[in-house]
Design a protein around this nucleic acid. Sequence first.
DNA 1: CTGAAAGCGCTTACAG
DNA 2: CTGAAAGCGCTTACAG
Lengths: 350, 350
Amino acid sequence: MYFYENVIVIMRKKTTITLKHLAEDLNLSVSTVSRALNNHQDISADTKELVCSYAKKMNYFPNLFAKGFRSQKTHIIGLIVPQISNYFTSTVIEGVLQEAEEKGYRVIVSESKNCPDKQEELIQMMRQFGVDGLLLSLTRKTKNVQNIIAAAERIPLVLLDKVSNKIPCTHIIINEEQAAFEAVEHLIHTGKKNIAIIKETEKSFNSEMRYRGYLKALKKHNLPIDEQYILSTEDISLQHGQRLAYQILSLQKRPDAVFTITDDCAIGVIKTFKKLQIKIPDDIAVLGFSNSLNSTIISPKLTTVDQPGQKIGATSVKYLVEEINNENQVISKTVEIKTHLVVRESTLKL
Amino acid sequence: MYFYENVIVIMRKKTTITLKHLAEDLNLSVSTVSRALNNHQDISADTKELVCSYAKKMNYFPNLFAKGFRSQKTHIIGLIVPQISNYFTSTVIEGVLQEAEEKGYRVIVSESKNCPDKQEELIQMMRQFGVDGLLLSLTRKTKNVQNIIAAAERIPLVLLDKVSNKIPCTHIIINEEQAAFEAVEHLIHTGKKNIAIIKETEKSFNSEMRYRGYLKALKKHNLPIDEQYILSTEDISLQHGQRLAYQILSLQKRPDAVFTITDDCAIGVIKTFKKLQIKIPDDIAVLGFSNSLNSTIISPKLTTVDQPGQKIGATSVKYLVEEINNENQVISKTVEIKTHLVVRESTLKL
DNA sequence: CTGAAAGCGCTTACAG
DNA sequence: CTGAAAGCGCTTACAG
């Protein structure tokens, strides 16, 4: 399995310069050195100059851990997401990291693997570790939110993307319902009348809101809501898209469009349709959600809702840091980030 | 841009239970409470029972930050990767997180965005922050490794996937050369004789090793090495794959196969070929590297080398933790993780 | 302008 | 079996 070569072992240099070292070398007190480095007004310009240049020469760096310990602030943010290896999520993380860095925070990242128990453990771990605040994107299966509410009462907590209305804290989300509404309305504008939807069996926030948008669009345009066109699946993945596509084709009256609430699932649907020579979008149009990388790889290219992950991540950090600086207030507000529909070949006749 | 609703503000509960609280309540000393909770042998069973149950009742959690400060161990690992929103990288991160959790470490994740200066900053930041060890995947453009070598002398450092032979420390890599060799040999076995390669202009470790594997395969099978078949690009992306595909088609003597050192680039090549009605693999076969998600979305499905990201990540943590526990030895060894070729439609006649 | 001292929450060698 | 005390590296109110 493994292969080793040239195992060299040398001793590691071990000398961490502390304030004490500097103080002794300079014949000053630790307090003075500390104040000089922090540019405190009480210290004379000469001393500051002396201390700073010597610190630089000695390659001194403050021990942030000690600093954090003293001030009871770790300057660490905890981030818990369902799954990292998901393109949208990874762009959220990028946004979080970028904004956190700008605000002087480090981010401990972790993954709940869509398991509520693991999620609880991680929240505990993060709190215990002493993060200054917590960014949480819920698992699909989160039912019992008692412990999360309890956590929110004690530590700044911001929910992002996958949220729950039962938890009173700041929510950073996209305009789920409106986005789905516009997307489905686009299908209607292209002349489609029998529009199926594939959503999640678990009534997650995202799935339900997109479903609402779908219903709203049908209602607005006086299209009947047909139960057989409303499909659900536990795992809204490519594989299940492939499977459900067969189910859709076997319906007594075939729909002329399918709106799936994720790109992955939409791509699965397209794959099956292509295999069975269904013409997309002429026979059946397909609409996804997320604007993942895959959506332009598949042929026909997928029409989908662009979900600005970076922005969601960055905004979450902004609000979290605000709450951290606001110490003992729990703020409960909802911030919606606008999305837009990206129209491509899977819904548009050429 | 944003939309606010129901802004509720309540006060946050603020009471952190410390050892001192427990000690006072129980009329014991802080030392005894500490020892009882840590199951120290000196403490009587009765006292342990008393302390532990009371701690539980009070929902006490040790302040890991104070603990870490005391022991001069933060139990945090720093991870620096070029780009998170890259499927392979995100699986590496998953492996890192999983193994780190198992070993009781938290992970601070950061992204160098393939910028050497940013990378240096991050290394500094991580060291300053006091991480116990550092996991680093180099930027493509890393030239000056002096500061990284200096860091490795002071803090346990493991390089993963994107490494440099100039840095003496543990390297966790895949069998780059062998993987490329086997992949190109597979092309030869399918009857291809004029095989082009697309590699990076910057001579990164990965690019160079894959190039070597390519050369080795040609030599073994007595195929001539033709300069015009060796293409390079700065950014080995889908877009540049599309561009270079035109260049390949304009060659005096068209190759009958293209090996690109990333999947993204290979997919770009396929896109252009499809647009121009080149038959894949009959006219020209295409071979990628990584086994990214996209490789099964594109049609024809891409033959590629499966790169086990999770395993690379997990293995890196294993070796890093070993070094952390080994305090003052710098270990320099190379661990190769085996890959395997995934043969699909882009190289195989049906 | 500078220093001595206390303290953040914990562990542990030393004493009893 | 239990406790008092020191100390991890830093900051800061207090004193001079």
